[in-house]
C-alpha cells in the first residue's frame, strides 16, 4: 500500500512508530475516503441492523463492482492527465456485441468474455489513436466516440434487449464463490493487479510520469504516445468487462447497459483522491470510492429515505471530499 503513495515510490522503511504511521496515512491520497467509508459503515450498522447481513453486504459489493471496474480504467486515464467520456457507452456497445457472440454465433461463454474484452480494447484504442497519435483533446475525442458507441448500440439492437444469454453465462454475474459474488471477485482481483502494475512496473510508473509532466516524460525517453494509446485501450477493455458482467447479471444484453456509469466512474476516482490534472491518485482509492458510493446508495434504501435523494447526497459527498483534500494538502 505504501507504494500507492505516488510521491514516495522508492522510500525505504523508516522506523515504524505511531507518529510515522500518522504522517504516512495523512500523505496518502485515499486516507480521507477510507475514514469516510469506515464512519459510514459504522453509522449504518448502528442505524440499520440488517446492513451487516451477508446478503446485504454482497448486494452492496456487487453494486460497487460494475461501476468500480469502469472506474479502474478511468483512473488510469485520469492519472495520465486525460479523461474518457466514452466508457459507459463502450460498456453498453461491448455488452451488446458480447450478447450477439453468445446468442447469434453461439460462442462459448468462456471464450465470448475475453473476445468481448478484446472488442472493448479495440474501442478504447480508437480513442487512443486520436488522442495519442493525432494529439487531439481527449475530452472532445471521447465526447464524440461516446455518441458513436451509444448510437451504434441502438442501431444494432433497435432498442430491444437481447435475451436470454444462456445458463452457462450467468455464472459471471450471478454466481458466487465462498459466498462472495463473482463480479466482486473479478473487480477486486483486477484492482489488485492494476495497483501492482501501477506501483511496480515500468508501464505503471510511466503513466505517473506522463501525467505529472508530459514534456519531461518525452525528454527522458518515454514514448508518450504508446502509453496514451494503451491506457485508453485498457479503459475500453475494463468497460467491456463491466458491461459483460452486468449483462450476465441481467441475463440480457440491454441497450441501456452503461448508462450513468461514466459519472459514477469519474466520481469514484475523484473520491479516491485521483487528480483531474493527472499524475496523482491510486487504484486503492478508486476501489474505496466505488464502495463508498454503493454503501451510500444502500444506506438510503435501508433508512427509507426517498431514492430521489441519492444524487443530491453523492454530490454533497464529492464536495466534502474536495474540501478534505484541500485541508490535507495544507
Amino acid at each position: 500500500m505504501t507504494h500507492e503513495i505516488t510521491g514516495t515510490a522508492g522510500s525505504r522503511p523508516r522506523r515504524a512508530g505511531p507518529a510515522e504511521f500518522v504522517r504516512r496515512f495523512r500523505q496518502w491520497e485515499a486516507s480521507g475516503i477510507l475514514i469516510a467509508l469506515i464512519v459510514l459503515v459504522v453509522a449504518l450498522s448502528l442505524a440499520a441492523p440488517n446492513f451487516l447481513s451477508q446478503y446485504n453486504l454482497s448486494v452492496v459489493a456487487r453494486q460497487a463492482s460494475f461501476v468500480g471496474l469502469v472506474a479502474l480504467g478511468q483512473t488510469l486515464v485520469l492519472l495520465m492527465g486525460g479523461i474518457d467520456l466514452s466508457v459507459g457507452a463502450a460498456a453498453g456497445l461491448s455488452a451488446i456485441v458480447g450478447s450477439l457472440l453468445l446468442t447469434a454465433l453461439g460462442i462459448h461463454p468462456y471464450l465470448a468474455l475475453p473476445l468481448t474484452m478484446l472488442f472493448g480494447l479495440a474501442l478504447g484504442c480508437i480513442n487512443g489513436f486520436f488522442v495519442a497519435k493525432l494529439r487531439l483533446n481527449p475530452f472532445i475525442v471521447t465526447l464524440a466516440s461516446w455518441e458513436v458507441f451509444a448510437g451504434l448500440t441502438l442501431v444494432i439492437t433497435k432498442g430491444a434487449p437481447i435475451r436470454p444469454l444462456g445458463e452457462d453465462f450467468r455464472v459471471f454475474g450471478q454466481g458466487s464463490l465462498f459466498g462472495v459474488p463473482v463480479p466482486v471477485l473479478i473487480f477486486l482481483s483486477a484492482g489488485l493487479i492494476l495497483a501492482y502494475v501501477l506501483a511496480r512496473t515500468r508501464f505503471g510508473r510511466n503513466i505517473y510520469a506522463v501525467g505529472g509532466n508530459r514534456e519531461a516524460a518525452s525528454l527522458v525517453g518515454i514514448r508518450v504516445w504508446r502509453i496514451e494509446f494503451l491506457v485508453f485501450g485498457l479503459a475500453g477493455m475494463f468497460a467491456a468487462l463491466a458491461g459483460m458482467l452486468y449483462a450476465s447479471r441481467m441475463d440480457a444484453g440491454q441497450p441501456s447497459v452503461g448508462e450513468g456509469w461514466l459519472m459514477g466512474a469519474i466520481t469514484a476516482a475523484i473520491l479516491g483522491g485521483t487528480s483531474l490534472r493527472g499524475g496523482q491518485g491510486s487504484i486503492v482509492g478508486t476501489i474505496l470510492g466505488a464502495l463508498l458510493m454503493a454503501v451510500l446508495a444502500n444506506g438510503i434504501v435501508l433508512l427509507n429515505v426517498s431514492g430521489y435523494w441519492e444524487r443530491v447526497i453523492i454530490g454533497l459527498v464529492v464536495l466534502i471530499a474536495i474540501l478534505v483534500d484541500l485541508w490535507r494538502r495544507r
Binding site: 510521491g7 522508492g10 510508473r205 505517473y208 510520469a209 514534456e215 519531461a216 499524475g279
Partner: peptide, 16 residues
C-alpha cells in the same frame, strides 16, 4: 516545464 516530475520522488526522478 521540461525537467522534473514534480509529483514524484527524488529517487524516481533520477532513475526514470
Amino acid at each position: 516545464q521540461e525537467g522534473i516530475f514534480p509529483l514524484l520522488s527524488i529517487a524516481e526522478n533520477m532513475a526514470m
